[in-house]
Amino acid sequence: MTLAPETTDLKIELQLENGWFTVCELARLLPGRGVAALLPDGRQAALFRDRSGKLYAIDNRDPFGGAAVLSRGLTGTHQGRPFVASPLLKQRFDLESGVCLDDESVRVATYEVRAS
């Protein structure tokens, strides 16, 4: 894997109710690792980037443990679905739908995200 600094100055943006919200430079996101963003209304989003460069954003709060730590979990794929495993008690959340793969009655919010 190459982790060469990005040559472009693309920014990561999240779709909120009133338009696209700029979070940070794309280069801040390591493939396979997340970062957390503070949203204007106080919510927190966890942003991830996979090896192919695809971006994902879900709510940062672990609904089981309550702490805002999903951005610090390990990512991976399960049956073709990208997920993050919470660092607290390891429940996995689908990065596209927010559904918990270990307990489908639980899901976290997802956000639309792009690099532009």
């Binding site: 982790l3 396979g32 690792r33 702490a67 805002a68 610090r72 390990l74 660092p87 607290l88």
Partner: peptide
């Protein structure tokens, strides 16, 4: 370093132990 950072468990990634409130 490099790729290794992305592989570590969350605790190793921050070189500290995560507690229940984050």
């Amino acid at each position: 370093e490099g790729e290794q950072a992305a592989l570590q468990d969350s605790n190793d990634h921050f070189l500290a132990n995560l507690q229940k409130n984050g």
